[in-house]
Amino acid sequence: MVSSDTSSLRTRRSVLAACGTAMLAGCSDILAPDSPPPSIECTHTTYDWPMYGYDAARTSHVRSHDLPVAAEASRFSQTGTHTGGGSADAPPVVHDGVAYIAGSVRIEARDIETGARLWESEPEDGIETSPVLACGTVYVSTVNETLAFDPEDGTELWRADVGTHFGVSSSPVAVGDTVYVVGVGVTALDAETGTKRWHAQIEHSALGIAIGDHIYVGAGSNGSGEVAAFTRDGDDLWRTTAAGQVYSATSVVGDTVYAISKTGVLTALAVADGSVRWEASVEHGINEPPAVANGRIVVSAGNEKRTMAFNAATGNRLWTFETGVSTGAPVITGDRVLATGANTGIHVLDVGTGNRVHHWPIENVGSQPVIAGRRLFYRGWDVSDVFVIEP
């Protein structure tokens, strides 16, 4: 969220919170909806939690944070039907005291301190991905479109007819002045205007994207799959089927891309040519990228029960921890790992040993935990709303 006047931004948020869901009817004279929408200008900003997997490389590695000590979670947002669950398919993104959530019925912004809804927008089709914060803008990909919103009041700034059809791992990525969207191939959009810069076709269904020096796409369909690498200009770099059916984004650190197959193999690929550096056995049914930091890789339990850590250079297994079924990517923060179990909660593990140092024994954890403002946000599993563990 780019602003040269923080006090003005806070005042505007206070007005929005007071207006609530009826803001257009009750506060039109304050918000001046007929004024021209602000332009998008891509300047560097550091966000609290800007996208799925935290960064464009999908490392799920954040600096050390103070974590809440509370043992209970409360519902933070319900962005589907007004009376039922099944609303959000992905965790939120967070910055400067505001959480941005994309659900099946609406996109909304909420104050993380009060829970007040600041604005909302109802898309024309479904959403299964997390938003992206970049260029002082909120970007959201629906099934058929990608849209840009003003983070202060939800004004729609542009929309492009490029969507994504799959789960949270295919959430869009923003780097510099470009938003990358995967679905039927990979498309690069100008972040300021929504103009399509290029599109690259992929043989299989594109199921996840990560960006380092180049662009890496995990894909899988009909019993086969690939990892495809492209330059930032959309030119083919290499493609390999060595990693098998990749049903998630990859993670990339340095000169290595890490991909997980649906059938339970973690593969380290050279960024230069896609050649295999090593392979390791993991659990089956993993649809989330691994967390990577400081020479270690942590992989979720998927449809089985064990979260695992490996040496990033050799692939040697370092430890395992039994979380039960997990549909959330791990997070590495400082010397800790946050690992989820759908029915066992969120486990804080020592990244070196795998020993548990803290535990939130909560049910229905359905996504990667998002750390911001001494809070943990996550999507529920069987109810799919967004929940929060607060200080």
Rank of each mutant, 00 (worst) to 15 (best):
V365P: 00
E113I: 13
G345F: 01
R336E: 02
S205V: 10
G97H: 07
E279C: 06
V365K: 02
G84P: 03
K305D: 12
T79S: 15
T263W: 09
N144F: 15
V93K: 01
T263L: 13
E363K: 15
G285V: 06
A191V: 10
A109H: 00
V217D: 01
V253G: 00
A116I: 07
N144R: 15
R277K: 14
G208Y: 07
E120C: 10
S281N: 11
G154S: 12
R75L: 14
G366P: 07
M23L: 15
R58F: 04
T187Y: 08
A312Q: 08
A22G: 15
A312Y: 04
T241C: 13
E128C: 11
A160N: 07
G234F: 06
L133F: 11
V143Q: 13
H214F: 14
W49V: 07
T46L: 14
D96W: 07
V132M: 06
T46R: 13
S121L: 10
L16W: 05
G315M: 04
F149Q: 08
S39E: 04
A229H: 06
N222P: 03
V105F: 15
G53V: 01
E390M: 06
P92H: 10
I209E: 03
A219L: 07
F166L: 13
V98L: 12
T6W: 12
R75V: 13
P131K: 07
C42W: 06
G103Q: 05
W381P: 03
H82A: 15
T340L: 11
D177K: 11
A329N: 06
V252W: 01
A268R: 03
T21V: 12
G341L: 03
A229T: 06
A339K: 00
L133S: 06
G328P: 07
Q245Y: 09
G295W: 05
V365Q: 03
G154H: 04
G80P: 10
E120L: 13
